[in-house]
Amino acid sequence: MTREELVWELDRQVKLVRTEYGLTQEAMARALGMSKKTLVEIEKGRSSLGWMGAAAFCTVFSGSQVLGRLLGGEASDMVRALAFQDLRPTYPPTMGGRVWWRTVEMRGGFRIQQNILSQHYRALDSQNGRVCSSFDLEQVRRQVDELEVRG
């Protein structure tokens, strides 16, 4: 999935999430830091959240069941995977992937997992710390291999 594809999917879910949270258009627009007019245009398919708006949407409504079902868990995971694509940040520990993740393979002291809905990959160290994430399994493998060589 690309950033553009994520934004397109999220644009289509705005009204459902607003309904899920019981918000008026005015209240949701205020929560997202946009005008009601802009929100109405997004809900009608005439405008878009854009990347920054999508990231804010996923953060503000991270507990949404609508977004959880669409993206396979917490929406912010998907945003991080796309935001850090081709970058190598230091991630905080995870819960180890008990619900939305399946282990694809073990490589040394690392576990490569794939999200069962969004299909993106991540690698965890032995303490469940995320070391990388991407939609490209080969990229995750290369990063894990580099960490094993350095380790």
Rank of each mutant, 00 (worst) to 15 (best):
A56K: 15
G109Y: 04
A81L: 04
W51I: 12
D145E: 14
R88Q: 08
L39I: 06
Q65I: 10
T59A: 13
S35K: 11
R80K: 09
T103P: 03
F84M: 07
M106H: 15
G50F: 10
G151R: 09
R111V: 12
M78Y: 09
P93K: 01
H120D: 09
L49D: 14
V66F: 07
L39V: 05
L147N: 08
G96H: 06
K44Q: 05
E5N: 13
Q114E: 10
T103N: 04
A123F: 05
V14M: 08
V99N: 00
A31W: 07
S133G: 01
A29G: 10
L87I: 02
R46C: 00
S64D: 11
Q85V: 12
V140S: 01
G96E: 05
G33L: 02
A27S: 15
L147G: 07
V79A: 09
R88A: 06
W100M: 01
F61M: 05
L10F: 09
W51V: 12
A56H: 11
Q113K: 06
W100Y: 10
W100F: 12
A54W: 10
E26F: 11
V104L: 13
V140G: 02
L23V: 11
R3N: 14
S64F: 11
V7W: 12
W100K: 00
N115Q: 06
C58M: 11
G63D: 14
R46M: 03
A27P: 06
V40K: 01
A27T: 14
V60I: 15
S76G: 02
R30S: 12
A81W: 01
R111T: 13
W100V: 00
L82V: 08
L67I: 08
I42L: 04
T90S: 04
R107F: 03
K15D: 10
S47Q: 05
A31D: 14
